[in-house]
Every structure is written in C-alpha cells, then in structure tokens.
Design a protein around this nucleic acid. Structure first.
Lengths: 150, 150
DNA sequence: GGTGAAAACAGATGCAT
DNA sequence: ATGCATCTGTTTTCACC
C-alpha cells in the first residue's frame, strides 16, 4: 500500500464506475500496472465491492432510527447468536458492538414510524436474549460520506 | 418507479460496476430501455453516485466512534452553522439531527484513540456553539450493508 | 512499470413495433 | 415505451521490453 494505491482507492470511492483507463490517467500510471494494482487491492480485500449510492427518501425509506440493544448475557456466544440473527434483517444498515455495558447499536431504515414499529415487533423483538431496547430517531441526515479520509 | 426500476436500483447497489448490458439482462430488458431508465434514475436523484466499498481497517482506520453533540442554541441558524462546519471534517462519515433535545449524532472514523483525541481537540471542539459532547466507542462493526431493503 | 497490438465489449443511434 | 441491429469508440487483455 503505497501512495498510488491510496490514490486509486480514493478515486474509486469518489467514482466507482471509473474505468481503469481513466483511473490510470488520474493516478499517473499507464493502464496495465494500474489494472494490476486494482486487481491486487481487490484480492487483498482493501476494495470489497462497488455500490450505487441511493437516496433512501426516493425509495420511500425516509427515516433512520438508532436502536441501542442490551443483551441479557454478554458473552461471546450470545453476541454471535445476535449477530447471526441481525444479519438477516435487511432494514438494519449498520450494527456495532459498543464498549461499556457491551451495548449493541443499530441503524435501522424504515418508511415511517408504523413500519419501524412493525420491524420492532416482528423482527427485532423476536430475537432471543434481548434485555432491553432504546430507540432514537433521526429527524434528518445532515452528512453522509462514502469516502474514507485519505 | 415501477418494479423494474426497483430491480435496477437493487442490482446496482449490489454491484455498482455492472454494465448496462449485464443489467439489462438481469432485469429482463434489452439494453436500450434499460439505459434510458438508468439515465432517468440518475437524473431524478434516485441514484446519486457510485462508490467502491473499502475495508476501513485495511486503510488503518479501525475504530468508529459515535459522538453525541448538544448545541447551545437549537435554532435553525445554529444547526445550519454546525452542519457547514461538520461537512468539512473528513473523519465524519455520518451526521444526523436527532429528535428529543435536538442532539446531533456523528459517526467518526479514526486510526486509534490518539487520532480520535486529536480530532476532538483540533477539529470538533473548534466548532463554536457546542454545549457538550459524549463519545461512545465501537469495539467492532458487526454488520454493514449498502443495499437498502427492497 | 511501460508499450503495442488484437480482440472483445460497451454505449449510442436509427428505425420498427 | 420497448426491441433489434448496426456501428463506432473504447477498454481490456495479452505478450513482450
């Protein structure tokens, strides 16, 4: 991972559909070594995929809700089981294991509060081992960035 | 936005580098109307861009920290000013205006706790109008999804 | 890492349905 | 609004320096 690799990663985060030719031009390399580097970055798991960025509101998913989950047990097995279960919930866009009381933090997207309520009742609360939940609603997304700092 | 449009959006979230030809094949359309639909989806702001998905750890950015910010004033002007300032912080990957006490929630990425401390001191706390901060650390990212639910 | 070739492919256009 | 066929331009890939 030298400076050129970082540049490639940065450029492809800004425009994931850029061709290798354009990319090579942008980083000051000829297409061949640029393609070789890109291949290596993908193979090494630095770049794990490519995705279209979509406006959730345009899909009718205008609310984000952060849910703090406290598990009854906080050992490895309990956390693993929860992870497997939460992975199947498509509404959960992000899930973090937090420090402190080993809380788990979710960001959930939903069409509206009714839909979120349905998610809580039918999906989240069906997962065993949850001691309690606390939901916090986002009024608005102020910033969303998909390019990591240099 | 009919069913085919949703399918296009879904497919491009899963693979943002898919060509129009592949996409057309996948949604059961010929390339021409498929390209037209894609153009429209981009023009209407449903698809706002394309991005490579990068493993932050491979770039040495292994920690995510959630920071709750409470502003001194909570009026429109104060929130706007904060938004302008926070937009310039590359470490801030997400920023939400929350309900309740009109708290603001940030997700910040950093190399380690030292780097995060530097961010707090030199960047975040330089922004005027902040009453207090509360940081919560993520031990681990359990789930990250970039495809919105169908 | 660079160069040049060839082959493959995608994207655009025009017209018909 | 979709589909088909063609055409043009570009990209990717290869062998080799």
């Amino acid at each position: 991972m030298d400076q050129i690799d970082r540049w490639i990663v940065r450029a492809l985060q800004k425009d994931g559909r850029m061709t290798v030719t354009e990319l090579a031009d942008k980083v000051g390399l000829s297409p061949t070594p640029c393609a070789r580097r890109l291949e290596r970055l993908q193979r090494d798991g630095v770049i794990t995929g490519y995705s279209a960025t979509v406006d959730p509101a345009k899909l009718g998913l205008s609310v984000s809700i952060f849910v703090s989950v406290e598990l009854e047990k906080q050992d490895r097995a309990a956390v693993d089981a929860f992870e497997q279960a939460i992975r199947r919930c498509e509404e959960v866009m992000e899930c973090y294991l937090m420090t402190g009381s080993r809380d788990i933090l979710l960001r959930v997207v939903a069409a509206d509060l009714t839909a979120f309520d349905a998610f809580l009742e039918n999906r989240l609360m069906k997962i065993p081992g949850i001691r309690n939940l606390r939901s916090n609603f986002a009024l608005r997304t102020m910033v969303r960035r998909d390019t990591l700092p240099a």
